[in-house]
Amino acid sequence: MGIAATITAPAEGPFFQGKKSVEPILKTENLWKLYRAGKVDVPALRGVNFAVQPGESVAVMGPSGCGKSSLLYVIGGLAQASRGKVFVDGNDLTSLSDAARTRLRRHKIGFVFQRFNLLPTLTAKGNIAIAQFIHGDGFDPHRFDVVTQLLGLAGRMHHKPSELSGGEQQRVAIARAIINEPKILLADEPTGNLDSKNSEVVLQMLRQLNKDLGQTIVMITHNPEATTYFDRVVHMRDGIIVDGVPAD
């Protein structure tokens, strides 16, 4: 039995293969996000309509300041929408309290950041285990072993982030994000701080997670090459999605 087969696929269906009839795992309707700058409201998102099917991998591209990160934070429940709706696995985030959004994030969302954002005091193992601890199901050694082997981290578990390369740190961050089998993995420029070789490794792993396990992934990137690893590319400009085409 292969590694992939030992992990339960997080999405509700088999690997997404263009089955558009399936209910979206993530959907936004006329989504607005305004930031207050002095006495002025500055819109970061201006009516975004966006849907992601279970098992789909989507890359979001666009220039700096176009609202990519805001979109990621709002659909991940880290930031509150100013207007519109966000549905994650059927739950309307905009109608939830802060505590309820936190619970939903804990159980359905995994984050990967550009700057890895590992806790510097913990080892690689501790960084992954704390996600399980917060999730509340306790430490699952089987799941832990499978994920760390899948990401090629088995020999690096007792090292602190400062003792790991950038690529290794990002793989630990991915392991932390998927350890609780989230419905959606949100990645904010995960290769932005990596060299091309490590970028490729990380992208390969994200693709493997998507293809082998059916993990739904939404990734923000500036790198056009990175989008080739994804099913679909969405372009953003000035807070709105300007297109959404399948990648080659």
Partner: peptide, 9 residues
Amino acid sequence: GVLKSLGAD
């Protein structure tokens, strides 16, 4: 912020 992103309340 990281702990909150992981779902820590």
